[in-house]
Amino acid sequence: MLTSTVVSNVSSTKDFSLEEWMQNPPDHTEWVNGELVEKKGVTLKHSRIQANLAYYWRNYKDSSGQGGQVYTEVPCRTNKQGRVPDVAYLTPELFNQFGEPAVLPQSFPLIAEIVSPTDLAEEVIAKSQEYLQSGGEEVWLVFPENRWIIVTTKNQRFVFTSGEIVSTQIVLKGFSVAVDELLA
């Protein structure tokens, strides 16, 4: 969810329905509050952390035999919006159920959002709750500048900081990585 405080990094159009977005979402867009919103301003650090997390999740799901798929910048529909999480994991069961449609019709079970300096904490936290209310089971909010990772589930919240090991709570069971290694 984006506000007028970050409009300089976002352009939007109102003549685009959620159904149109679901059929063919334009690159680097989300459908938020009735508007097509283009996300801009991704930094090198953001992209590096996104790649690191996708790499670690992909390797773990393969080595642990849990299967499924790991994606970056992949569209999904929540109960209210069309979203594009930075990193997402789809379980083998949901992959078998849905295949690979243009847009997943629900939230991914495991999602990570890398928070940029222009994002507002309240909005990122609200987005994580939106994912959890739309089929998501676990959301990682990665704050690179503060070296924090907040892991949320429907019933719990955990904060991991520099010097600690962050781990999955519900989905992709058993995965863990040092916060400093992930953010390196």
Rank of each mutant, 00 (worst) to 15 (best):
T72N: 07
F108A: 14
N146E: 15
L90Q: 15
L18F: 04
E138W: 06
V10G: 00
T118D: 06
F16C: 10
A54V: 03
N9Q: 10
Y60H: 09
I170E: 14
N24I: 07
V124H: 09
N59S: 13
N52W: 05
G41Q: 01
E93F: 05
S17A: 13
Q106T: 07
A184R: 13
R48W: 05
T43G: 11
K127V: 06
E38K: 00
P117Q: 14
Q169S: 13
F95D: 12
A88H: 09
R48G: 12
V179Q: 09
S128H: 00
V6K: 10
A54D: 06
L172V: 09
E20S: 13
L172Y: 07
T72I: 10
K127W: 07
V177I: 12
Q169M: 12
P85I: 05
T43Q: 01
R83M: 14
F98P: 07
S64W: 06
N155G: 08
T29R: 02
A88I: 08
I114A: 08
V177D: 10
V139I: 00
E100N: 15
G163T: 00
N79V: 02
S176C: 13
L183Q: 10
Y55L: 13
V70G: 08
F158M: 04
L36N: 00
N79T: 01
V32H: 02
L182G: 06
T13W: 01
E164A: 09
R83D: 09
V84R: 15
T153K: 05
Q133T: 06
W21Y: 09
K61I: 04
L90V: 05
P101T: 11
S63G: 11
I49S: 11
V177P: 03
N79A: 12
N59W: 09
N96T: 07
P75W: 03
P105H: 10
A121Y: 09
M22Y: 07
Q50V: 09
F143R: 07
Y89G: 00
L36H: 02
G34Y: 03
P85C: 14
L36K: 05
Q129T: 03
I149C: 02
L183G: 04
V70Q: 11
K61S: 14
G65H: 08
S11I: 00
G67Q: 14
V37R: 04
F175H: 08
S63F: 13
S167W: 03
I165L: 11
P26L: 06
R58N: 14
R157G: 10
V139G: 07
W31K: 08
Q169V: 13
I149N: 10
S64H: 08
P85D: 07
I114K: 06
Q156R: 11
P25M: 11
T78Y: 08
L18P: 02
S167L: 05
E145N: 10
T152D: 02
E93W: 04
K45R: 15
E130C: 02
S107F: 00
M1W: 12
A51G: 12
V87C: 03
F95R: 15
V7I: 02
V151D: 01
E145S: 06
Y71C: 13
V103E: 12
L2K: 01
